[in-house]
Design a protein around this nucleic acid. Sequence first.
DNA 1: ATGCTAAACGGACTTTACCCCGATTAATCT
DNA 2: AGATTAATCGGGGTAAAGTCCGTTTAGCAT
Lengths: 204, 204
Amino acid sequence: MERPALPLGSPPTERADAVRNRKHLLATAREMLAEQCGADGLTMDGLAERAGLGKGTVFRRFGTRAGIFQALLEDDEHAFQEQVLAGPAPLGPGAAPLDRLIAYGRARVAFMIRHRDIARASLDGRQPIPAGTESPLSRTHIRMLLGQMRLDGADLEMLAIQLTAALDGPPLLYLSASDFTEPTGIEERIGQAWQDLLRRLCGT
Amino acid sequence: MERPALPLGSPPTERADAVRNRKHLLATAREMLAEQCGADGLTMDGLAERAGLGKGTVFRRFGTRAGIFQALLEDDEHAFQEQVLAGPAPLGPGAAPLDRLIAYGRARVAFMIRHRDIARASLDGRQPIPAGTESPLSRTHIRMLLGQMRLDGADLEMLAIQLTAALDGPPLLYLSASDFTEPTGIEERIGQAWQDLLRRLCGT
DNA sequence: ATGCTAAACGGACTTTACCCCGATTAATCT
DNA sequence: AGATTAATCGGGGTAAAGTCCGTTTAGCAT
């Protein structure tokens, strides 16, 4: 009756086998994705069997099919976030807030494009809570940088959400697969538009 | 071998019974949603049975479960769009582009909040093409208004996509259900943030 | 009207996500 | 170390999504 409710380890302590199994399942899932080239074809039964575990275990760990992809994405996001928090400027600390924000957007777009399949597969219209983790990291970071900029009298919380959506939305929802296969340099184009958007936001 | 490929009627002509059945299915779906208060609990079998049609027909018409919600949303969007195209200013024509854009955003946010359940249920991580119709109307309208504003040297196409995402994203992906049940006036808050965002974009 | 053809219909069939609960095992306390 | 407890594991079971193909029917041409 005295749970810290702090995000150190989800429950007070997570059992060792549980941790081991989760990692093993994620690794197996990556293998299957790499081999079968696509998120379809990754079934819960197939994953369980290949990992040598029971189906119940898979569902206990991830709750839902989309949950697996959310976990995969969260995992990669973690590595990405380290670059942002401790990497070289302008992405990492040391540059002016606006420059960091521009650099962050470009990096995030690249990340989203690279993980487009997983990110899309992590969407699940049945979960009432939107993806739970749908970029709280991104949103928090943007929020922090906005706080360091001189934006008088703006609702920074909401602005951060809107900018997060402006970053993730295009690759995730509004651009079709063909936009990325064509040799259009779509990544650079989104990045440039992001930069323009921010420049205007800050008054040139 | 000479299909216009124009969006007049999806295929050259759609058979009358097909049209009738689609409308009937959509109406039945709305009934079920209203009665059961929620998108869950709307099953393909249930819908087919209640509509007095075969399951194959349902899938032929909508392709997938999410397809039904996409169709419902598109339907409502159509009615909404008429208000935008022919309604009173500032939402309808007659006002300055910026004012119209601000008004449009507020209306769109209200629309998304009102249709939040359906919109979320229309998300499907398995369809490679993102929702096919995920707000081409919205995006097109925003694009048009941007074209009427003096925004020198911006990628208006991409900016329109980003702004569309900034509108739809928050209610759809980034705000949890509790944010809307709490008496926080979230709609007004998003609308205000949208207005601020645009004001800054245009240099006050 | 009548025949032709392509499209729509229907419902049985297969696959897959997700649930449940008895068996098992890791962590803790004495 | 050994017992206790609470969480995890396992895999069979259910229901719903999505597929297939033989049958029916609308639209068109003669």
